[in-house]
Design a protein around this nucleic acid. Structure first.
Lengths: 197, 197
DNA sequence: ACCTGAACACCGTTCAAGT
DNA sequence: ACCTGAACACCGTTCAAGT
């Protein structure tokens, strides 16, 4: 029995903002439009988020968790098969909602959950690279693979591969080349001490 | 003897905008601030650029040309040496002005020079991958390398590698792994018909 | 305790008026 | 032909006033 019961929630606001971002891009995510989609006026959002950047940070955090869950759902026994599945899922996630994906690597978007969240997201990838090329090379291998897949979809979404060739086949070729190289199990030239995506 | 001689130029405006972007980020690039840096008022910019997006597109175009020139300056005979040099130069370019670099792959930034410009920028990379692994594998190899290097610096700039390890050594390890794999000269599984960055 | 309308500062963009 | 001040629409953000 509060003087004024809540008419929305942080989760509902984040969901509304993510949906708007996916459908209309960043320009469609105004405090007014997000509020309206969550059943409230713009200024009310400041009750739960410090500002628009914090709200976008929460959207990024939710999207990262979602992507991490999809990656963790890949459970093939063969590490190469599992990594292929993860790469496909990752790429599909990016193509499904390009503006949401772009937010994950946007400079200046605060990361509320921080380091712990990024480590959790990196978990499934590290587990499979450990299977593929051993504990010593697991981290650098994960970084190499993540950088490649992120770079590839980022370039795709920016329209950098418009000049010809079968992009699907090219991705498959590149991924195969990478997985082959990593399966050969090189060890890194310098010791690496902690985990990180 | 025009009724009103020009007090600035498209090039000067682009240079001013690029400088502001490098020093203050996108929020610092307002029509007013760019105009002031170019010796003119905000509304005058519309005489030479359709809108802010077009101005940013011109900045991206100039930065791409600049990056392309730096890559082309790498002329070591050994393809592996040349590619290492290019990767280092590319990474330095991104670290030097992160906000400018981010613009190159920002979705929604118009590309005025278009396909031809992107092909020209890809030229030096294609030339060296041709030397490294032959004409058939040159394009997919260039795409693999570009995607990796872009993805890596993009993750670095987004703060994705904060969790530990020597990032410098990790980059070197990853690059070596890639170059080794490509030098082995696999051919792509499907024919590719045209060039593209 | 949460929500709202009104207000403020700021920015992109347009345009009639100057030279 | 180019530049400017003034104006408009829009957005993020604040806050006093409501319930």
């Amino acid at each position: 029995m509060c003087p004024a019961p809540a008419r929305t929630s942080a989760d509902a606001i984040v969901a509304a903002a993510r949906d708007l971002l996916a459908r209309e891009g960043p320009a469609g995510v105004t405090m007014q439009s997000v509020g309206a989609a969550a059943g409230v006026r713009g200024p009310s959002l400041y009750k739960r988020f410090a500002d628009r950047a914090a709200l976008l940070g929460a959207v990024a955090s939710a999207a990262r968790a979602d992507l991490g869950a999809r990656l963790a759902r890949q459970t093939a026994d063969d590490p190469v098969q599992r990594l292929r599945g993860m790469a496909t899922v990752y790429r599909a996630f990016a193509h499904e909602a390009p503006h949401v994906y772009a937010l994950l690597f946007a400079p200046g978007v605060p990361d509320p959950a921080g380091v712990r969240e990024r480590a959790a997201a990196a978990g499934p990838v590290l587990a499979v690279t450990r299977d593929l090329c051993g504990p010593d090379a697991a981290l650098p291998a994960a970084r190499l693979l993540t950088a490649f897949v992120h770079g590839w979809v980022s370039m795709e979404l920016a329209g950098a591969f418009q000049l010809g060739g079968d992009v699907e086949a090219a991705f498959d070729f590149a991924l195969t080349t990478l997985l082959d190289a990593l399966a050969r199990g090189r060890t890194p030239p310098a010791p690496v001490t902690a985990a990180g995506g």
